[in-house]
């Protein structure tokens, strides 16, 4: 049957056709209001980042240590399976991240879709941008700021599960003993982000 296979393979056409059709599909889907979750990847000094957004705003930032297929499957289940690779909606995010990694941006100015966080975690995460660029706060300080001083452990888990790392700066929250503490992207990434904000340029 290999002769037949060979014959049938001649219908395939080049790979670029599918890429072009895929882009066209994403544009059509966006225009017709069918693109509920758009995603793309971007290279950065902390590795490849997966970005996903709804029409409300940025929904998810994932580091390279998370399996992209698992991240997308989770978003499909929890937000919408109408999910496609599409760049345009994420262009402003990519622009601000580039400025951030170049040391030219201290505050992100992006609409966020925080529906992946529970109300308590969202409240904690909303405190985080108040920690100024280049400085840190302890888990306890954040718990006090969130008007729940007993909730140090819960603050820890709100940081550990932050669906929007970098943009919502959970990397600025450190342990009371001065050590860096855990991070969704791994401790090395956390240290790199803190060093960047201290003005030490990463070797890109």
């Amino acid at each position: 049957m290999s002769e037949e296979r060979e014959l049938l393979d001649r219908f395939a056409g080049p790979e670029e056709d599918l890429e072009r059709l895929g882009r066209r599909l994403a544009e059509r889907a966006e225009a017709e209001g069918l693109l509920e979750v758009a995603w793309r990847t971007v290279e950065s000094p902390v590795g490849r980042l997966l970005l996903a957004a709804t029409d409300r705003g940025l929904l998810r930032v994932a580091f390279a240590n998370e399996d992209p297929d698992a991240v997308l499957a989770d978003l499909a289940r929890r937000v919408s399976p109408r999910l496609l690779r599409a760049s345009r909606r994420l262009d402003p995010v990519v622009g601000e991240l580039e400025e951030y990694f170049a040391g030219r941006r201290r505050v992100f100015d992006l609409p966020l879709d925080q529906r992946l966080s529970t109300p308590f975690r969202r409240r904690v995460q909303q405190q985080l941008p108040r920690i100024p660029y280049g400085s840190t706060a302890t888990y306890r300080e954040v718990a006090v700021a969130a008007e729940n001083p007993g909730a140090v452990r819960a603050v820890g888990s709100a940081c550990a599960t932050n669906p929007l790392p970098i943009v919502v700066p959970c990397h600025r929250v450190v342990r009371g003993d001065g050590t860096t503490g855990g991070y969704r992207g791994g401790p090395a990434v956390k240290q790199l982000l803190l060093a960047l904000e201290r003005g030490e340029r990463p070797a890109a």
Binding site: A76, P81, L83
Partner: peptide, 9 residues
């Protein structure tokens, strides 16, 4: 279907 449509494409 709750899988990403992306996968079907």
């Amino acid at each position: 279907m709750d899988q990403p449509f992306e996968v079907a494409v």
